[in-house]
C-alpha cells in the first residue's frame, strides 16, 4: 500500500506538472481538490488517465468519483481493489 501511494504521488507530480513539490510533501490523507493540492476539473481528467493507463482501473460510474478522488490514500485503496 505504501509503495502504491508513493507511486501515485509520483504520477501526480509528473502528469499534473506539480512544480516544486516532492512526494514527501503530499499528505496522502489530505484532499486533492479545493483546499489540499488545489487541483481542478482538468486534473480530474488527468487522474482518470493515470489510473487507466498505469493500473487498468476504470471508474465504473461517475457517482463514485468524489469519494475515490478525495485523497491519494482513497485513490490507492480504489486501485488496490480494482487493479487488473
Amino acid at each position: 500500500m505504501e509503495q502504491l501511494i508513493l507511486e501515485l504521488k509520483e504520477h501526480l507530480i509528473e502528469e499534473l506538472n506539480l512544480e516544486d513539490i516532492t512526494p514527501e510533501e503530499i499528505d496522502a490523507e489530505a484532499p486533492l481538490f479545493g483546499d489540499g493540492l488545489g487541483l481542478d476539473s482538468i486534473d480530474a481528467l488527468e487522474i482518470i488517465l493515470i489510473l487507466e493507463k498505469n493500473y487498468g482501473v476504470r471508474l465504473a460510474n461517475t457517482a463514485e468519483a468524489k469519494p475515490v478522488f478525495y485523497s491519494v490514500k482513497t485513490l490507492a485503496e480504489y486501485v488496490m481493489q480494482n487493479r487488473k
Binding site: E15, I42, L45, E46, E52, K53
Partner: peptide
Amino acid sequence: QLLNPTPFI
C-alpha cells in the same frame, strides 16, 4: 484513446 486533455487545451 486515453488522450490527456492538457496538451490539447
